[in-house]
Design a protein around this nucleic acid. Structure first.
Length: 153
DNA sequence: GCCAACGTTGGC
DNA sequence: GCCAACGTTGGC
């Protein structure tokens, strides 16, 4: 089982949006970076757990946790010419972008701001915290997961 | 295949 | 709104 951190801008799709979806489940769309795409397509498995990270928020930080409840399938927004995620080079036979389904597990009572993550010595190796990191999906180690779960209490 | 120009991300 | 970092595009 793997752990992940997934970024989304709460103005567009935040943890409150996921909470209101039927079965608190939705597909995680709009990933348009090949590295992140490959992790979605090849590495994310049903049962994996993920942090829901609010980027471009005030303050940015981790809002809760999700479970991966369906493995990769083609991102429907790539075929929708009205979507901002439309990709004219993608076809149904040869899709370029993928989604997984995520289900809300818990919204943290205590939101963990980025600043707190940076201040935690045990998290110094986290990919999220690396300078210049822009990847919207990053792996998290079990040790990092446990530390952050402890901080959420 | 190089690389300059350009676009995007995301913290501040 | 600024800007550093970095991915993508396209001319050559």
């Amino acid at each position: 089982m793997n752990y992940w951190l997934m970024k989304s801008e709460p103005e567009t799709f935040g943890i409150e949006h996921l909470a209101k979806c039927p079965k608190q489940t939705h597909y995680w769309d709009g990933v348009r970076n090949y590295q992140a795409r490959n992790m979605i397509r090849d590495d994310m498995k049903v049962g994996d757990m993920a942090f829901f990270y609010h980027s471009n928020a005030t303050p940015p930080g981790i809002a809760g946790i999700m479970r991966i409840t369906r493995a990769a399938y083609p991102d429907p927004t790539q075929f929708d010419s009205h979507s901002k995620y439309y990709d004219p080079k993608a076809t149904e036979d040869n899709p370029r972008w993928f989604v997984v389904d995520v289900t809300l597990v818990e919204k943290f009572k205590h939101y963990i701001p980025l600043e707190e993550l940076r201040a935690e010595p045990g998290l110094s190796g986290m990919q999220l915290l690396r300078r210049g990191n822009r990847l919207s999906i990053t792996p998290v180690t079990e040790e990092q997961w446990d530390i952050i779960m402890g901080m959420a209490k």
